[in-house]
Design a protein around this nucleic acid. Sequence first.
RNA 1: GCCGGGGUAGGGUAGCGGUUAUCCUGUAGCCCUGUGGAGGCUACGAUCCGAGUUCGAUUCUCGGUCCCGGCCCCA
Length: 410
Amino acid sequence: MKISKPRGTRDFLPEDTALRRHVESIMRQVVTHWGYHEIITPTFEHLDLFTLKSGEGIIGEIYKFTDKGNRDLSLRPELTAPVMRMYVNEMQARPLPLKLFYFENCFRYERPQKGRFREFWQFGVEVIGSKSPHADAEVIALAEQILESVGIKGDIHVGHLGIIRHILRELEGEKQNKIMRFVDKKDDKGLDEYLEAINAPIELREQIFELVSISGENAISKAKEIVGDLPELESFEKLLNLLDAYGVNYSVDFGIARGLDYYTGMVFEIYAEGLGAQNQVCGGGAYQLIHLFGGGDVPSTGFGIGFDRIMEICKLQPKPIQEVVVVATDDTRSEAIDIASQLRQHVPVYLDIMERNFRNQLSHANNMKADYVVIVGKKEVEAGKITLKEMSSGEQGLVTLEEALELIKR
RNA sequence: GCCGGGGUAGGGUAGCGGUUAUCCUGUAGCCCUGUGGAGGCUACGAUCCGAGUUCGAUUCUCGGUCCCGGCCCCA
C-alpha cells in the first residue's frame, strides 16, 4: 500500500531544500548582524500555553493530543507564546532587552491553499523588555531589511491600537472586540450597521470612520484632530520619525486591528504581491503577554514572517553545488577511495558505489552534470598523479592532486 | 466549516464503455571491459482508494482521499 503525505504537508526535494536553506541563511545573517540570538523551543507544548494566550477558540485549529501520561499537549501553532514561556521559565534574570529570533515549523489544522499549509515555517523575532518606540522601530526596520535581503519589496502598514482603543474606551470589551474585527476587515458597511445596532453615539461613529480613513502625510496631526493629545499618539509619532530615520517606507493605517487583547500598542503588517488571497508575509506588534505565564509586566515587541510565502515569491537561485566525480577502474578502486578522501577535505566528491564500469561511471558523471571528473586509473596511480577532466570542454590533463584542486576551486 | 476545478509509470501526457493502456522523458544495462554527451536495442514502471451501474469501467454514478484555486479564519 502506498502511503501519501498528510494533507497540508510538503516534501522538499534536494533542489527545494537547497533553495530554502539558502534563503534561510540570508535571513539568518541579517538578524544576526542586528544582534539577535537564535533560540529553539519544543515542537510541542502544553495545550494550556496556547489557550491561555489566545483563548479556547483556537482549539479548533490546533493539533492537540494526549500523551501516555494523560497530558494535554499541542503541536505549536505559533512561536510567540513558547518564546514568552521560555523567557519566564529561564531568562528572567538576564539583562534587558533580550533580542531573540527563531526559525521553526508550526502546525495549524486549516484548509490548505496557496501560501497556507498545515505545517509551515515561521521566521520571527521577539524583543523583550523595552516599551520604547525605539524597539518598535527597530523591529519594523529589521523586518523590512530581512525581506529586502531576499529580494522582496513589501508594502508596510503601521498602526497603533492605543488610539482606537481610546475612542472605544467607554464601550464594554465584547463590543470593542467586535468593532475591531470589522475595522480589521475594512468592512465599513458591516461596521456601520453594527454601530447602529448597538446604538453607539454619533460622535464615536464619526471618530472611528475618520481615524480609519487617515492615510498619507500628516497622519499624526489628523489623528490629533480626532482624539486630541494622547500619550499613545506622541509615542506613535516618535515611532514614525524613527522609521524615517531608518529609511523605512511605510503607510500609516489605524485600521490594523488584532483579535487579541494582549496587543497593546504598535501593530504592523507587510503585504507582498503574487500570493493571491494569502498576501500577508509578515505581521507583528507590541504586546504584553508575559504576565499571563507568571512573569512580570514585561513589554515586548516582535514579528513573524511566513517563510513559505517568502519562498513562494522569492526569485533567488541557490548557488549550485558542484560535485567532483572520481572515476576509477576495477583495479584502482582502493586508490580512488584514497584520492576521494583527500579531495573531500576541500570539495564535495562523488564516488561510484554501483560498481559501474569505467565508461558508465563517466556517463553517469555526465548525467549528474558534474563539472569535473577526476580519473584514477592504472596510468595515474603509476605516475602518482590524477587526470582532471573538465566535462563541458572535454579537456583533460595529468596533474597532481594540488594542481587539480587549484583548477577546480577556481 | 463552505464553494469550484482536478488526480493515468518517478516527471509530462494520449485514450473517454471492450486497447497488449499511447507517446515523450527518466532510471538500469547492452551495443562500446581507460573516456561521457548522439543513435539503436533490452529491462523497469501507471489508471488515487472504495462502492455502484454494466456482460464488461481508466472512461458513467456516488462516497472517501489528496492536489489546485477561492470564501471563512488567520494567534
